[in-house]
């Protein structure tokens, strides 16, 4: 496999691989397997959602009326935009424009923080309503059997997702700082690509959570 620009001999990062391309292949494959584990992790929550939607069909249809659809949709656009920005950042670093890459990563970090802030505002509203998970559910306006389950699922699904966003933001911050030190460039950019993949995964999961919890 030809190297990208072939100007410099490759510095091997891990000595037990035969060459640079198999090192990168292994890194990407490992990341994909990790992503598969994350998908299965969330699949549990989606299974629970599906089972309770089957059990309480009317309730799940009426539930979005009690959600803040505007904030949720706004968050979707924030997160998709951040994904686009991260993809642009990875592309820039690959092409050797590491400063542009770092700037784009910083923008993605801001968008990630914006997502979390909007989410926090939404959570605050639910807390004021008393739409708390589990045994603390006390939302009088939506007091039908199973409504507590809907909100428990909502809190758990978005909560686990928010934890992933938080991890993703810290990954992006680390990548940004390391890009600024000139560690990544056209020759070596695997961590940026893998960190970007993690961020996209977080985005994809939200793209499934959003229609299920806010729209349908």
């Amino acid at each position: 496999m030809p190297l990208e620009d072939g100007t410099r001999p490759v510095v091997p990062r891990a000595f037990h691989f035969g060459d640079e391309s198999s090192r990168e292949d292994a890194a990407h494959l490992g990341m994909w397997i990790f992503i598969a584990t994350e998908v299965l992790l969330f699949a549990v929550l989606f299974t629970a959602y599906a089972l309770y939607r089957l059990t309480y069909p009317d309730l799940f249809q009426r539930a979005p009326a009690h959600m803040d659809v505007f904030l949720g949709t706004l968050n979707t656009f924030v997160l998709v935009t951040s994904s686009i920005v991260v993809a642009l950042a990875v592309d820039s670093v690959r092409k050797g424009r590491d400063f542009a890459g770092a700037a784009l990563l910083a923008l993605a970090v801001l968008l990630g923080i914006a997502f979390l802030s909007i989410k926090a505002a939404e959570y605050a509203k639910h807390v004021r309503d008393g739409a708390l998970p589990g045994a603390w559910y006390a939302y009088e306006a939506f007091a039908v059997p199973g409504a507590n389950l809907y909100f428990t699922l909502y809190w758990v699904m978005t909560g686990v997702h928010a934890v992933h966003v938080l991890v993703g933001v810290s990954v992006l911050v680390t990548l940004m700082l390391r890009t600024l030190t000139g560690e990544f460039g056209a020759r070596f950019h695997t961590p940026v690509a893998l960190g970007g993949m993690y961020w996209h995964l977080v985005d994809v999961i939200w793209l499934f959570l959003w229609p299920l919890l806010y729209l349908t």
Partner: peptide, 11 residues
């Protein structure tokens, strides 16, 4: 159901 929300044990 119904399970009255204000009466849930644990609150």
């Amino acid at each position: 159901g119904p399970f009255p929300v204000t009466r849930l044990p644990g609150k």
